[in-house]
């Protein structure tokens, strides 16, 4: 990690100009100690968070949820219902905070925008030929512009994993830069799809590449491949955003997505954020959970804390 802190700020902004410079920089990043990262993640997962701390963690986690539906079977009615749930996750309890954002496909953005307008809940849309990212650049950019025009204020793009794995870093970099430009004022989340990157070293490189190219958030996964967010992968990404801020002064957010289903899992992530990058990132502006079923578990745990009685899924909406 020391290699990054020694880089001068001016060097980093120049990197994107040449394939060689980019490759030299990315391959010069220190390798990830796989055993160490996994052990550290497992160790942080053993912390016990109870009573008032747990109540605070649950409310924070609810505010960090990107309530997501990315199905071929999504309908305007379904996404409107989901948006209503985002505004008032627990209708029985007005003290329950709203979620961070709703995340849908571009064609569903207008329907969600109607519901969320003026509420403070962000509207995220996946774009750039999600989930594979295998489409010509013009089509990906048109996808992004359409989503932004329809009212999305956050765009979740996928990187071109084929190009990344083949070592064509400039191509990936240029695509992110172009997408960022197409986003205008919308926030750009860059999905690395870590399940397809094979090694932690690649995750670290992809994280840096996405941040150098201007991503506002780095996100683990699409949720469409078998291996989604894991604690060690998120740890590597958190280290990357920490080092990136130390090197450039710019703060980038992190979003683990996919496979986070229980309150226990969510709290493990929050512990890891606090211990790795500190309280600066413990806010919905800098850390999000991409999830759908997680919210109901958070609500059930919240109900347990307020009523003292274990809640059941029959009393929460199906979505």
């Amino acid at each position: 990690m020391t290699a990054t802190t020694t880089s001068a700020r001016s060097d980093l902004t120049e990197l994107g100009r040449s394939e060689t410079a980019l490759r030299t920089f990315l391959h010069g990043l220190p390798g990830v100690d796989q055993v160490g990262a996994e052990q550290r993640a497992a160790q942080l997962g053993t912390r016990s968070i109870k009573t008032t701390a747990k109540a605070e963690a649950i409310d924070l986690a609810i505010r960090m949820v990107d309530l997501t539906t990315l199905e071929g079977a999504d309908t305007p009615g379904k996404v409107r219902a989901l948006a209503a749930k985002a505004l008032r996750p627990d209708p029985a309890d007005p003290s329950c905070p709203h979620v961070g954002a709703v995340c849908v496909y571009p064609s569903m953005v207008p329907h969600v925008a109607e519901v969320l307008r003026g509420s403070g809940v962000h509207l995220a849309s996946v774009a750039t030929a999600f989930p594979s990212g295998q489409a010509p650049l013009e089509i990906k950019l048109a996808d992004v512009r359409a989503a932004v025009e329809a009212g999305a204020d956050e765009i979740d793009m996928v990187i071109n994993r084929g190009a990344f794995l083949a070592g064509r870093y400039s191509e990936v970099y240029d695509e992110i830069v172009a997408t960022k430009e197409a986003c205008g004022n919308a926030h750009l989340k860059v999905i690395l799809e870590t399940g397809e990157l094979a090694t932690y070293d690649n995750v670290r490189r992809a994280s840096w590449l996405a941040m150098l190219a201007g991503g506002d958030f780095i996100k683990t996964s699409t949720g469409k491949v078998p291996v989604a967010a894991t604690l060690p992968v998120t740890l590597v990404m958190l280290e990357a955003v920490r080092d990136f801020r130390a090197a450039t002064g710019r703060q980038v957010g992190v979003k683990p997505a996919g496979g986070i289903k229980t309150t226990k899992d969510a709290i493990k992530y929050l512990v890891m954020v606090n211990e790795t990058v500190g309280a600066d990132w413990l806010s919905p502006d800098w850390f999000r959970f991409g999830a759908s079923s997680l919210l109901n578990d958070l609500l059930m745990q919240r109900t347990k804390l307020t009523t003292g009685v274990y809640a059941g899924p029959d009393y929460f909406t199906l979505d």
């Binding site: 009685v309 274990y310 809640a311 899924p313």
Partner: peptide, 9 residues
């Protein structure tokens, strides 16, 4: 008592 109050029982 936990089982008796549990909403999923």
């Amino acid at each position: 008592p936990t089982l008796a109050a549990h909403m999923d029982v």
